[in-house]
Simulated assay, not measured.
Amino acid sequence: MVYKLLFSPTGGTAAVANALTDGQIVDLTDRSRDFSAVALTAEDVAVIAVPSYAGRVPKTAAARLAEVQGGGARAVLVCVYGNRAYEDTLVELADLAEAAGFRAAAGIAALAEHSIARTYAAGRPDAADKAELHTFWEKIEAKLRAGDDTAPALPGNRPYKPLAVHSMVPHTAKRCIDCGRCAAACPVGAIDATDPRRTDADLCIGCMRCVALCPVQARQIDPDALAALTARLAPLCAGHKENELFL
């Protein structure tokens, strides 16, 4: 059985994982789920896919993955980034997966539209990316069929870079219709279910899920803050970066 353990608040990471293969989804953004009840076996394969937040695994994803019982399943480790860099995300994900009982079989660094500054890697994964990811999966399957237990050599550093994510907390415009969709979907419960105009800035992880899901575009980032971020990222996100496979 193939399982896809996904932390994908805005859909980019899920798009990459779905281009790789089908499988039973374990949604790591679901704050109501008991992840300790998720148990795999050595016969299973897990695609563990997370976005890179400032070069690290999102803390929420790390905590929920730690609850899963890997059971010796082979793991394909996927980090998805918005055209800046993924830095230590893959090696941290490998360590988290090993601690949860998984055996790393492959690693992938893939591109998806930046979740905040959406002009960067816009439209990715595109058709060419998806075809390439499908080819990656065929190579991974060949390795698994051959019984090759070699762990992939992954780029990154231990100790990891300091976790210095400064969350950009979306605000709510007057056109909010109080549908509550954002509060129900927030991975960390930062939005007040009784008053979705209120967001707990201390809980918010800046994942932008509420922005992506709002049916009337009432959840927004401060325009000046967004413009400053976009300008700061410009020299770092220039050019067309390629997907990478590590076997």
Rank of each mutant, 00 (worst) to 15 (best):
A75Y: 05
Q24T: 14
D44S: 05
D27E: 09
A42P: 00
A39T: 14
T41G: 14
V38R: 01
R33L: 15
E67N: 06
I48D: 02
V38H: 00
T41E: 10
L40Q: 08
A19D: 12
A66V: 00
S32A: 13
A49N: 00
Y53R: 14
G23W: 13
A66D: 11
A49P: 00
V68K: 08
A42Y: 02
R33I: 02
V76C: 06
R33G: 08
R56T: 02
R33V: 07
V38K: 04
G71C: 12
L28K: 01
F35Y: 14
R56L: 06
L40R: 04
V76T: 01
T29P: 00
T60S: 13
G71E: 03
V68S: 08
L40I: 04
S32I: 02
P58V: 04
D27V: 10
P51Y: 13
S36R: 10
G23T: 13
V50Q: 02
V50C: 07
E43D: 15
G70D: 07
L28E: 01
Y53C: 01
D22W: 08
Q24I: 13
A19M: 11
V26T: 06
G55Q: 06
L40G: 05
P51G: 06
D22P: 00
R56D: 00
G23L: 11
P58H: 03
A62R: 01
L20Q: 10
G71V: 12
A63I: 02
A42I: 12
L40T: 05
T41D: 10
A62F: 04
G72K: 04
T21W: 12
L20H: 08
V47L: 15
G55M: 06
T60Q: 13
E43H: 13
E43Y: 05
A66L: 03
L40C: 15
A46D: 09
T41I: 09
G23K: 15
P58T: 10
F35A: 12
G71S: 09
T29V: 09
L28I: 09
A49E: 03
A62L: 09
D22L: 11
A42G: 10
A66R: 14
F35P: 06
T29K: 01
T29D: 00
R74V: 02
Q24D: 14
S36V: 02
K59E: 15
I48R: 09
T60E: 15
R64D: 06
A19Q: 07
A63T: 10
R74F: 14
V50K: 00
E67K: 14
A61N: 09
K59R: 15
P58L: 07
